[in-house]
Nucleic acid binder design. Structure first.
Lengths: 346, 346
DNA sequence: GTTAGCACTCAAACCTTGCGAGTGCTAATA
DNA sequence: TATTAGCACTCGCAAGGTTTGAGTGCTAAC
């Protein structure tokens, strides 16, 4: 099983390409006509048969063509597929989506998810993790003059949150201002996970800021909690467009359910033994191809994911979920381009 | 066609209830057993036949039970259905969803859409319209000390937007502060639709604020534009759970496509001749029941919608989209309760 | 007005059949 | 030895036929 002949590779390549395009078993005749007119179907058949023995192809039933196995897809992604880059139109489209000045991580993420799904025509997912490692650059407190104030937390990867907090009544005019200065003094430069109530607050003269500070903690802490779920999903509808799901509402439902579960998603998008990294790519990409025993719901699906970095800070994972026979080259290029663009943006 | 006998009403009610629960044609025997054991199926059959002649029922084919027609649903919604209120658990659940202090309209809307979909198990839609009529209370400009500033527009219905804008280079320390004061002076009290570039800005001494003001306009104007689409959809997946769509991916796709189109949605959620208002309800509700010729995609669907008001300001429409045989009473109660809650909130 | 009884209808489930795409094998060819 | 033509074989799929049973409408009796 060490070496596959050049011709076998060609044929395998043809099967994968064709299956990605058509979603139907590929026959020897088809390959002969479109890819290797110099050979006869019979010859191709024997090659196909050999490839099947090697585990690269499977046959849905005896009188059908072949379809690629997971092993074939892995080889395809790893060695075979054309790593063409995006068309200028596509690049332009992505840029115009992302070039609005956006500072809130949430906005960027939402936008990114949308553009990925739009361009690839698959479902995209962004998972925000590690937000706790972000460093606070500055905290702003803006008095809204109606008993509340707007809290803005600026970090090294952008604003992570702005939220309304209540202000105690009967405090002086400068209360908010002073509190703002104080917040800055104490917290700027710290990481989110390190913030805690300073001791002098508990009992000292600063006691009057205590409830305010507690609100601030509350807001910051809420990150990563479930309600702020940290999962951005875009284009789940697109699944319905692919024939592998057309007759199979249950499959789609199952899939969408899995996607809705943060833990499962996390698991899917992290590298593991049956995942695959792509070399030669400027970013680290992970591809997970349908385990095909399909016990956990992701039947006939592949997930391609990458680390998601904004301005040098790792934010989470970005991924594309599609049918196993998805357009790997397109998706890889898009992820490549987008992660690069985002990271470069200053 | 003026008066329907008491017994016919009972039977019609039974058919609708049963069909809502089962999604299958209702037979005379079923009605007899579950609702009117005192009568024989034969009697019920003749009543059913009469109801069919009156246009309240239809028969998918001659040897099947009856299903309610649009006319029956309308009667049901209007007169028949039990207007029970929510359980304490449900009310509590809604409250706990909505009682976070939220000031941004967008946040409130998103949250509302979610809770509606969660509780009703149908797809919910919120449409933001009329945002142009909102009055600006105050404008804040917060210097972010990196060449940009955070623009916060506070209106009588909450903050509508905070956005980053760029600040020209080489301006003095007080530039942002002065600009903020200026913005307030000029715009507070105005409605969004009325804002325009003040003449003194164009050529006068205030010229140096011009580009900044232009950014501000740009941000405010972006509202209602397509990219900020103003449509909040939640739970579109839920559609897949109902048997009327189970075999019918095309229907679902069609539906989702319609839902994605703002114009169509607007149309759907506005009152029209073939819609229906519910009296006796503290809010104005519109129910639109499947035109059933189904040419425009919303086959087998009903839409229940209400005006959406936050703190007394009309913001748009909130609606629930579900199968024609949806749980009207539940949905109506939920919409009732939620719109009341939101409006009351101060 | 109500009901039992019966004939009738028709969708859905099941079976049958034939077709045809596509294979594997074998024997002939280069 | 590699390739290929030819042919028998398999099996999914679609079309058509049959059966079943749920449910009705009608009629005649109560």
């Amino acid at each position: 099983m060490k070496e596959i002949s050049e011709r076998k590779i060609k044929i395998l390549h043809a099967v994968v390409d064709e299956y990605i395009a058509q979603a139907e078993p590929v026959s020897s005749k088809e390959i002969q006509q479109k890819y290797l007119p110099a050979l006869s179907p019979a010859t191709i058949r024997s090659e196909l048969s050999a490839l099947e023995d090697m585990g690269y192809l499977v046959q849905p039933h005896v009188s059908a063509g072949r379809i690629p196995s997971g092993k074939a897809y892995k080889l395809y992604v790893d060695k075979l597929m054309s790593k063409k880059s995006l068309t200028p139109t596509e690049m332009h489209r992505i840029k115009s989506y992302l070039d609005d000045k956006m500072v809130k991580v949430e906005d960027i993420v939402r936008r990114t998810a949308k553009v990925i799904s739009d361009i690839t025509n698959y479902t995209s997912v962004i998972l925000i993790q590690n937000i706790e490692n972000v460093t606070i650059k500055e905290i702003k407190l803006v008095d809204l003059t109606d008993g509340s104030a707007l809290l803005i937390v600026i970090t090294d990867s952008g604003i992570i949150r702005d939220n309304i907090i209540n202000i105690p009544e009967d405090v002086g005019d400068t209360y908010v201002e002073v509190a703002g200065g104080l917040l800055n003094e104490i917290f700027s430069g710290k990481q989110l996970k390190d913030i805690e109530m300073p001791t002098e607050m508990i009992d000292g003269e600063l006691n009057k800021f205590r409830t305010l500070f507690e609100s601030v903690f509350e807001v910051i802490r809420r990150h990563g909690r479930e309600e702020d779920s940290g999962v951005y999903l875009e284009g789940s509808r697109k699944m319905l467009d692919y024939p592998e799901y057309a007759g199979n509402i249950d499959k789609v439902k199952n899939l969408l359910e899995v996607i809705d579960t943060k833990e499962k998603l996390s698991e899917l998008m992290s590298a593991s033994e049956n995942s695959l990294s792509i070399d030669g790519s400027p970013i680290e990409l992970t591809v997970k191809i349908d385990s095909s025993d399909g016990e956990d719901g992701l039947a006939d699906c592949s997930v391609i994911s990458a680390k998601y970095t904004i301005r040098g800070k790792e934010i989470g994972q970005v991924g594309v979920i599609g049918p196993t026979r998805m357009n790997y080259d397109k998706v890889v290029s898009v992820l490549n381009y987008i992660t690069k663009t985002l990271n470069r943006e200053e």
